Simulated assay, not measured.
Amino acid sequence: MTAATVPAPSRPAPSRLRRTLALAGAETRLLLRNRTAVVNSLLLPLFFVALVPLTDIGGEGALGPRLVVTSLGVTLVFLTYYNLVTTFVARREELVLQRMRSGELSGAEVLLGTAVPTLLVTVAQVVLVLAGSAVIGEWAAPVDVVLPLLALLGGTALMTLLAVASTSFTRTPESAQITTLPLVLVATAASGLLYPLDVFPDRVAEVLRFTPVEPVVELARLGLAGQTWDGQAVDWAGAWAAAPQPLLVLGAWIAVAASVSRQVFRWAPRR
Protein backbone atom coordinates (compact mmCIF):
# COMPACT_ATOMS: atom_id res chain seq x y z
CA MET A 1 0.00 0.00 0.00
CA THR A 2 1.44 3.35 -1.00
CA ALA A 3 1.55 6.43 1.17
CA ALA A 4 -1.13 8.04 -0.98
CA THR A 5 -3.62 5.30 -0.13
CA VAL A 6 -3.09 5.34 3.61
CA PRO A 7 -6.25 6.78 5.18
CA ALA A 8 -5.73 9.83 7.32
CA PRO A 9 -6.34 9.26 11.02
CA SER A 10 -9.75 10.48 12.06
CA ARG A 11 -9.90 13.23 14.66
CA PRO A 12 -11.86 12.43 17.79
CA ALA A 13 -15.14 14.26 18.09
CA PRO A 14 -15.02 17.08 20.62
CA SER A 15 -16.47 16.23 23.99
CA ARG A 16 -19.65 17.78 25.32
CA LEU A 17 -17.64 19.90 27.73
CA ARG A 18 -15.37 21.24 24.98
CA ARG A 19 -18.33 22.06 22.74
CA THR A 20 -20.13 23.85 25.56
CA LEU A 21 -17.00 25.79 26.52
CA ALA A 22 -16.43 26.80 22.90
CA LEU A 23 -19.94 28.19 22.64
CA ALA A 24 -19.61 29.86 26.05
CA GLY A 25 -16.35 31.46 24.93
CA ALA A 26 -18.00 32.86 21.82
CA GLU A 27 -20.91 34.24 23.83
CA THR A 28 -18.51 35.76 26.36
CA ARG A 29 -16.56 37.53 23.60
CA LEU A 30 -19.82 39.00 22.33
CA LEU A 31 -20.58 40.25 25.82
CA LEU A 32 -17.11 41.78 26.27
CA ARG A 33 -17.55 43.74 23.04
CA ASN A 34 -20.52 45.48 24.65
CA ARG A 35 -18.60 47.98 26.76
CA THR A 36 -21.76 49.43 28.27
CA ALA A 37 -22.81 46.04 29.62
CA VAL A 38 -19.32 45.38 31.00
CA VAL A 39 -19.10 48.75 32.73
CA ASN A 40 -22.58 48.38 34.21
CA SER A 41 -21.72 44.90 35.45
CA LEU A 42 -18.74 46.31 37.33
CA LEU A 43 -20.13 49.62 38.55
CA LEU A 44 -23.65 48.66 39.63
CA PRO A 45 -22.51 46.31 42.44
CA LEU A 46 -20.17 49.01 43.78
CA PHE A 47 -22.99 51.56 43.61
CA PHE A 48 -25.15 49.09 45.51
CA VAL A 49 -22.49 48.78 48.24
CA ALA A 50 -22.42 52.55 48.59
CA LEU A 51 -26.22 52.91 48.58
CA VAL A 52 -27.38 50.23 51.00
CA PRO A 53 -25.70 51.67 54.14
CA LEU A 54 -27.89 54.74 53.64
CA THR A 55 -31.05 52.61 53.77
CA ASP A 56 -32.49 49.91 55.99
CA ILE A 57 -32.50 47.17 53.38
CA GLY A 58 -32.20 43.55 54.47
CA GLY A 59 -33.28 43.72 58.11
CA GLU A 60 -31.10 43.70 61.20
CA GLY A 61 -27.62 42.32 61.77
CA ALA A 62 -24.12 42.99 60.46
CA LEU A 63 -24.16 45.17 57.35
CA GLY A 64 -21.66 43.18 55.26
CA PRO A 65 -23.54 39.86 55.27
CA ARG A 66 -26.83 41.71 54.65
CA LEU A 67 -25.27 43.40 51.65
CA VAL A 68 -24.18 40.10 50.13
CA VAL A 69 -27.52 38.36 50.82
CA THR A 70 -29.48 41.22 49.26
CA SER A 71 -27.12 41.51 46.29
CA LEU A 72 -27.40 37.76 45.64
CA GLY A 73 -31.18 37.90 45.47
CA VAL A 74 -31.28 41.11 43.44
CA THR A 75 -28.65 39.86 40.99
CA LEU A 76 -30.37 36.51 40.44
CA VAL A 77 -33.71 38.15 39.68
CA PHE A 78 -32.81 41.37 37.87
CA LEU A 79 -29.69 40.15 36.07
CA THR A 80 -29.67 36.36 35.71
CA TYR A 81 -33.37 35.75 35.12
CA TYR A 82 -34.20 38.84 33.08
CA ASN A 83 -31.02 38.79 30.94
CA LEU A 84 -31.41 35.10 30.13
CA VAL A 85 -35.03 35.51 29.08
CA THR A 86 -34.08 38.31 26.68
CA THR A 87 -31.00 36.42 25.44
CA PHE A 88 -32.81 33.15 24.77
CA VAL A 89 -35.71 34.94 23.04
CA ALA A 90 -33.39 37.05 20.90
CA ARG A 91 -31.38 33.99 19.83
CA ARG A 92 -34.61 32.09 19.08
CA GLU A 93 -36.13 34.86 16.99
CA GLU A 94 -32.88 35.21 15.01
CA LEU A 95 -32.93 31.40 14.39
CA VAL A 96 -29.56 31.10 16.11
CA LEU A 97 -30.72 28.41 18.53
CA GLN A 98 -32.22 26.36 15.73
CA ARG A 99 -29.03 26.51 13.66
CA MET A 100 -26.78 25.59 16.58
CA ARG A 101 -29.00 22.68 17.56
CA SER A 102 -28.88 21.30 14.01
CA GLY A 103 -25.14 20.69 14.41
CA GLU A 104 -23.19 18.64 16.95
CA LEU A 105 -24.43 20.59 19.97
CA SER A 106 -27.22 19.07 22.02
CA GLY A 107 -30.07 21.19 23.32
CA ALA A 108 -28.64 21.30 26.82
CA GLU A 109 -25.23 22.34 25.49
CA VAL A 110 -26.75 25.17 23.45
CA LEU A 111 -28.70 26.56 26.39
CA LEU A 112 -25.85 26.20 28.89
CA GLY A 113 -23.27 27.68 26.55
CA THR A 114 -25.55 30.63 25.85
CA ALA A 115 -26.18 31.17 29.57
CA VAL A 116 -22.55 30.99 30.75
CA PRO A 117 -21.65 34.71 30.26
CA THR A 118 -24.66 35.85 32.28
CA LEU A 119 -23.89 33.31 35.00
CA LEU A 120 -20.27 34.50 35.16
CA VAL A 121 -21.43 38.11 35.52
CA THR A 122 -23.80 36.98 38.30
CA VAL A 123 -20.96 35.43 40.28
CA ALA A 124 -18.68 38.41 39.59
CA GLN A 125 -21.25 40.88 40.88
CA VAL A 126 -21.77 38.96 44.12
CA VAL A 127 -18.00 38.70 44.62
CA LEU A 128 -17.62 42.45 44.00
CA VAL A 129 -20.23 43.22 46.66
CA LEU A 130 -18.50 40.88 49.09
CA ALA A 131 -15.14 42.54 48.40
CA GLY A 132 -16.69 45.99 48.65
CA SER A 133 -18.24 45.24 52.04
CA ALA A 134 -14.85 44.06 53.25
CA VAL A 135 -13.15 47.21 51.95
CA ILE A 136 -15.54 49.49 53.84
CA GLY A 137 -14.94 47.43 57.00
CA GLU A 138 -18.42 45.96 57.30
CA TRP A 139 -17.66 42.30 56.65
CA ALA A 140 -18.23 39.67 59.34
CA ALA A 141 -17.16 36.02 59.31
CA PRO A 142 -19.96 33.78 57.99
CA VAL A 143 -21.58 31.18 60.21
CA ASP A 144 -21.20 28.63 57.40
CA VAL A 145 -19.81 28.85 53.86
CA VAL A 146 -21.54 25.81 52.34
CA LEU A 147 -25.09 27.11 52.64
CA PRO A 148 -24.39 30.36 50.73
CA LEU A 149 -22.64 28.37 48.00
CA LEU A 150 -25.66 26.08 47.75
CA ALA A 151 -27.86 29.17 47.56
CA LEU A 152 -25.74 30.59 44.71
CA LEU A 153 -25.57 27.32 42.75
CA GLY A 154 -29.20 26.44 43.29
CA GLY A 155 -30.32 30.00 42.58
CA THR A 156 -28.46 30.24 39.28
CA ALA A 157 -29.81 26.83 38.20
CA LEU A 158 -33.37 27.82 39.12
CA MET A 159 -33.22 31.23 37.43
CA THR A 160 -31.79 29.66 34.27
CA LEU A 161 -34.57 27.06 34.12
CA LEU A 162 -37.26 29.64 34.88
CA ALA A 163 -35.85 31.83 32.12
CA VAL A 164 -36.03 28.92 29.68
CA ALA A 165 -39.66 28.29 30.67
CA SER A 166 -40.53 32.00 30.44
CA THR A 167 -39.47 32.14 26.79
CA SER A 168 -42.58 30.11 25.90
CA PHE A 169 -44.81 33.14 26.51
CA THR A 170 -42.26 35.85 25.57
CA ARG A 171 -42.44 36.65 21.86
CA THR A 172 -39.79 39.37 21.65
CA PRO A 173 -36.88 40.56 23.81
CA GLU A 174 -38.75 43.80 24.42
CA SER A 175 -41.82 42.00 25.77
CA ALA A 176 -39.65 40.39 28.46
CA GLN A 177 -40.12 43.57 30.46
CA ILE A 178 -43.74 42.49 30.91
CA THR A 179 -43.49 38.70 31.01
CA THR A 180 -40.78 38.69 33.67
CA LEU A 181 -42.66 41.12 35.89
CA PRO A 182 -44.66 38.54 37.93
CA LEU A 183 -41.55 36.74 39.17
CA VAL A 184 -39.76 40.04 39.79
CA LEU A 185 -42.66 41.31 41.91
CA VAL A 186 -42.97 38.06 43.86
CA ALA A 187 -39.23 37.91 44.47
CA THR A 188 -39.12 41.52 45.61
CA ALA A 189 -42.16 41.46 47.88
CA ALA A 190 -42.39 37.88 49.14
CA SER A 191 -38.89 36.43 49.43
CA GLY A 192 -37.51 38.24 52.46
CA LEU A 193 -35.15 40.01 50.10
CA LEU A 194 -35.75 43.60 51.14
CA TYR A 195 -37.33 42.96 54.54
CA PRO A 196 -37.69 39.82 56.70
CA LEU A 197 -40.77 37.63 56.48
CA ASP A 198 -41.55 38.10 60.16
CA VAL A 199 -43.23 41.42 59.27
CA PHE A 200 -46.07 39.31 57.82
CA PRO A 201 -48.62 37.33 59.87
CA ASP A 202 -47.29 33.88 60.74
CA ARG A 203 -49.55 31.97 58.34
CA VAL A 204 -48.76 34.31 55.46
CA ALA A 205 -45.03 34.08 56.16
CA GLU A 206 -45.18 30.27 56.17
CA VAL A 207 -46.83 30.32 52.74
CA LEU A 208 -44.31 32.82 51.37
CA ARG A 209 -41.48 30.47 52.34
CA PHE A 210 -42.58 28.29 49.40
CA THR A 211 -42.08 31.00 46.77
CA PRO A 212 -39.20 30.41 44.31
CA VAL A 213 -36.59 32.92 45.50
CA GLU A 214 -37.26 32.76 49.26
CA PRO A 215 -35.27 29.53 49.88
CA VAL A 216 -32.25 31.07 48.11
CA VAL A 217 -32.42 34.15 50.34
CA GLU A 218 -33.06 32.03 53.42
CA LEU A 219 -30.07 29.74 52.82
CA ALA A 220 -27.77 32.70 52.13
CA ARG A 221 -28.97 34.48 55.28
CA LEU A 222 -28.52 31.35 57.40
CA GLY A 223 -24.91 30.91 56.26
CA LEU A 224 -23.75 34.50 55.98
CA ALA A 225 -25.67 36.31 58.70
CA GLY A 226 -26.57 33.42 61.01
CA GLN A 227 -30.26 34.37 60.92
CA THR A 228 -33.36 32.26 60.32
CA TRP A 229 -36.27 33.46 58.19
CA ASP A 230 -37.98 34.90 61.28
CA GLY A 231 -34.89 36.79 62.49
CA GLN A 232 -33.59 34.41 65.15
CA ALA A 233 -29.81 34.29 65.58
CA VAL A 234 -28.26 30.83 65.12
CA ASP A 235 -24.80 29.25 65.18
CA TRP A 236 -23.41 26.70 62.73
CA ALA A 237 -25.47 23.82 64.10
CA GLY A 238 -28.60 25.95 64.25
CA ALA A 239 -28.11 27.09 60.65
CA TRP A 240 -27.96 23.51 59.40
CA ALA A 241 -30.91 22.52 61.61
CA ALA A 242 -32.97 25.21 59.86
CA ALA A 243 -31.67 24.40 56.37
CA PRO A 244 -33.67 21.27 55.35
CA GLN A 245 -36.89 23.10 54.44
CA PRO A 246 -35.33 25.75 52.17
CA LEU A 247 -33.11 23.09 50.59
CA LEU A 248 -36.11 20.89 49.84
CA VAL A 249 -38.20 23.79 48.54
CA LEU A 250 -35.36 24.97 46.30
CA GLY A 251 -34.80 21.43 45.01
CA ALA A 252 -38.51 21.04 44.30
CA TRP A 253 -38.64 24.31 42.36
CA ILE A 254 -35.60 23.25 40.31
CA ALA A 255 -37.24 19.92 39.47
CA VAL A 256 -40.54 21.57 38.50
CA ALA A 257 -38.81 24.25 36.43
CA ALA A 258 -36.70 21.63 34.63
CA SER A 259 -39.77 19.56 33.78
CA VAL A 260 -41.82 22.54 32.59
CA SER A 261 -39.01 24.08 30.56
CA ARG A 262 -38.38 20.77 28.79
CA GLN A 263 -42.01 20.61 27.71
CA VAL A 264 -42.66 24.23 26.70
CA PHE A 265 -39.37 25.55 25.30
CA ARG A 266 -39.39 26.28 21.56
CA TRP A 267 -36.23 26.34 19.47
CA ALA A 268 -37.81 28.27 16.60
CA PRO A 269 -40.14 31.27 16.61
CA ARG A 270 -43.87 30.88 16.03
CA ARG A 271 -44.83 31.86 12.50
Score class of each variant (00 low, 15 high):
T172V: 07
A134Q: 13
M159Q: 09
G155D: 01
F200P: 11
R221N: 10
G113R: 00
E206T: 10
A187N: 07
L153W: 04
A108C: 02
T180R: 05
V207Y: 13
L194N: 11
S191D: 03
G132M: 06
V123F: 12
M100D: 07
A140W: 13
S166Q: 07
V145C: 13
A190N: 11
V184E: 00
V207C: 11
S102A: 01
L149P: 14
R101K: 04
G192I: 12
E104Y: 02
T170Y: 12
L183T: 13
E104I: 01
L150T: 12
T118K: 06
T156Q: 01
R221A: 03
V186I: 14
L147F: 14
V146S: 13
T118H: 07
S166G: 08
L111Y: 04
P148K: 05
L161S: 09
R99S: 04
L193M: 08
F210A: 06
R92N: 03
V199M: 09
G155M: 04
T172Y: 01
P148Q: 04
P201L: 02
P212E: 00
G113S: 02
A141L: 15
G107T: 03
G154A: 06
L130V: 11
G132E: 03
A190L: 14
L149A: 15
S166V: 09
S106D: 00
V127W: 05
T170I: 08
L149F: 15
V127C: 11
A124L: 12
D198Q: 15
A163M: 05
V199Y: 13
P201N: 02
L219E: 09
S106I: 00
V207R: 14
V129L: 03
V96C: 05
L222M: 09
V186L: 05
P173A: 00
S106C: 01
A108W: 03
W139L: 13
P117G: 08
T156Y: 00
P173K: 02
T170V: 08
L119V: 10
A134P: 15
L152S: 10
V204Y: 04
V143R: 14
T179H: 12
V207F: 15
T180W: 08
F169D: 01
L181N: 10
A163K: 06
Q98W: 05
T114P: 03
P117Y: 14
P148D: 03
A220R: 13
P182E: 02
A189L: 15
Q177M: 05
G192V: 10
V143Y: 14
L130P: 11
G137C: 07
A115L: 01
M100G: 08
V116T: 10
P182D: 03
L197K: 12
M100L: 11
V164F: 07
L194W: 15
A140C: 09
S102R: 01
L181C: 07
L197C: 11
V116M: 08
R209P: 08
L95A: 06
V135K: 14
L147N: 13
G154L: 05
V199E: 02
G137P: 12
A90T: 06
E206Q: 15
T180D: 01
R91Y: 07
L183G: 11
L222E: 07
